[in-house]
């Protein structure tokens, strides 16, 4: 497990060296891109973290979780993940804001924290992707794209819990 990240770094740099790429120059260009990405997401993240904070500290989040508890208990799904799972297909940064809240509350290495990480790493902002790709070429009838995309999200929700309980606990 400890080998994954260092070996990726070594193979990427060595491959760049073999292909005669100016490795450090490329790294600096990419890192600059990273700063821009951070700059671009910063305002959204600040706004949403505050909104999630309001929602959480007022007790509204707990209220929703309790409200949905019968359903989640039936499925064996941790109720702390429900708000994130609901928001994930709609807003990526919103889900990230809730993810930070889960980490803060339960710890990044807890069962819930790990499930949340897997869920967030294995799904995309479905609505956003569909809107962007179809509207860019003027497609109006998207047929069964939404059904297929949301089924994939639902599968990811179930399997994030299944895989974490199988491999990491």
């Amino acid at each position: 497990m400890d080998y994954i990240i260092p070996s990726i770094l070594v193979s990427v740099t060595l491959f760049g060296l073999i292909k005669k790429v100016n490795v450090f120059e490329a790294f600096v260009t990419g890192a600059k891109d990273g700063i821009y990405t951070l700059f671009r997401i910063a305002p959204t993240m600040i706004g949403l973290i505050v909104a999630v904070g309001v929602f959480k500290s007022s007790g509204a989040l707990d209220l929703i979780c309790t409200f949905l508890q019968p359903v989640t208990d039936f499925l064996g799904f941790p109720k702390q993940l429900v708000p994130m799972a609901l928001l994930r297909p709609v807003s990526g940064s919103g889900a990230t804001a809730i993810l930070t809240n889960v980490f803060k509350e339960y710890g990044a290495d807890s069962f819930v924290g790990r499930c949340a990480s897997v869920l967030s790493g294995s799904t995309e902002t479905t609505f956003y992707a569909i809107t962007m790709y179809y509207s860019s070429v003027g497609i109006k009838h998207i047929r069964h794209t939404m059904v297929a995309g949301l089924t994939a999200d639902l599968t990811a929700m179930i399997f994030s819990v299944v895989t974490v309980s199988l491999f990491l606990s």
Binding site: L9, T13, T29
Partner: peptide, 20 residues
């Protein structure tokens, strides 16, 4: 977050420029 984000973007840029 910024440090790790920049580091990964940097390494992935190498991967991109080397034709990976």
């Amino acid at each position: 977050m910024s440090g790790m984000l920049c580091m990964w973007s940097g390494f992935m840029q190498i991967a991109k420029e080397s034709g990976l």
